[in-house]
Simulated assay, not measured.
Amino acid sequence: MKFSPQGSEIEVQARIREADRTLVTIVQDRGPGVPSEMLQAIFEPFTRVEGSESVRGTGLGLAIARRAMLLHGGSVEASLREGGGLIVTLSLPARAAPLRTFYPA
């Protein structure tokens, strides 16, 4: 939302891919996008796209999202949206068993 023009729509779609029981969430905006050579780099900690200096942030959000997805067996990727903007696709497989939380005694 930080990088999208005020008043523009951000589209969010979520569906279950039945073939492998994976939740696929797609977020699309109409912001400035990123240079194609940076589509992987934006998931590295402290990476900021040139020209984003006027927007508050440290460049950690996408790195944290990628780490969280990987820790749960999922993935996240970015691509350029036709007509301008960015598409971020998050894929999270179903778990065979629920996560267990252990609390110290």
Rank of each mutant, 00 (worst) to 15 (best):
D20W: 11
V24H: 03
G51T: 10
G85N: 06
T58R: 13
L60E: 12
S54K: 13
T22I: 12
I26Q: 04
I42L: 08
L23C: 14
I87V: 15
S54G: 04
E18T: 14
L39T: 05
S52R: 04
E50R: 14
S52E: 15
T22P: 07
L90V: 15
E77K: 09
S91H: 02
R17K: 12
G74E: 02
G83E: 04
R17Y: 10
G31Y: 10
V24K: 04
E37I: 12
D29A: 07
D20A: 10
M69D: 00
G84V: 10
L39D: 01
V76T: 12
L71S: 12
G33V: 11
G59A: 11
S75C: 04
R30S: 15
S54V: 12
G73A: 03
G73C: 02
P35S: 11
L71V: 01
I42W: 03
L23V: 14
R56F: 10
R21Q: 15
G33W: 07
G31A: 10
G84C: 05
D29T: 08
I26Y: 00
S36A: 15
G59D: 08
L62D: 01
L71E: 12
R66H: 09
G51P: 09
L62C: 03
G73E: 01
I16H: 04
A78R: 02
R17C: 03
I64Y: 05
E53L: 05
L80M: 11
M69G: 02
G51C: 08
R66L: 13
R30C: 10
T47I: 10
R48L: 14
G57S: 11
G83N: 07
P93K: 06
R17G: 00
F43S: 09
F43M: 12
T47G: 01
P93I: 05
M69C: 12
P32R: 15
A65E: 01
S54D: 08
S91W: 04
T25A: 13
G83D: 04
T25H: 01
G31I: 10
P93Y: 07
L60Q: 13
E18W: 11
T89Y: 00
R48P: 08
R67D: 02
L80Y: 06
S36R: 15
A65M: 05
F46W: 09
I87C: 06
H72F: 06
G33P: 05
S52T: 15
S52V: 00
A19P: 00
P35V: 13
I16M: 11
I16N: 07
I26P: 00
L23M: 14
A19W: 07
G57P: 09
L86M: 11
G51W: 07
A63K: 03
L92S: 05
A68P: 00
V49D: 02
G51K: 08
I87A: 00
L80C: 05
D29W: 06
L23F: 06
P32N: 04
G51Q: 08
L39Q: 04
T25N: 01
V88E: 03
V88R: 02
L86Q: 02
G31L: 09
A19E: 15
L62V: 01
G31D: 10
R17W: 13
G61D: 13
G57I: 09
I87R: 09
R66S: 07
S54T: 12
G85Y: 07
I42N: 02
L90T: 08
V27E: 02
L90N: 01
V27I: 15
R48D: 04
R66M: 12
E82Q: 14
P32Y: 03
S91C: 12
L71A: 11
L62I: 02
D29H: 09
P93S: 07
L86S: 01
L86K: 03
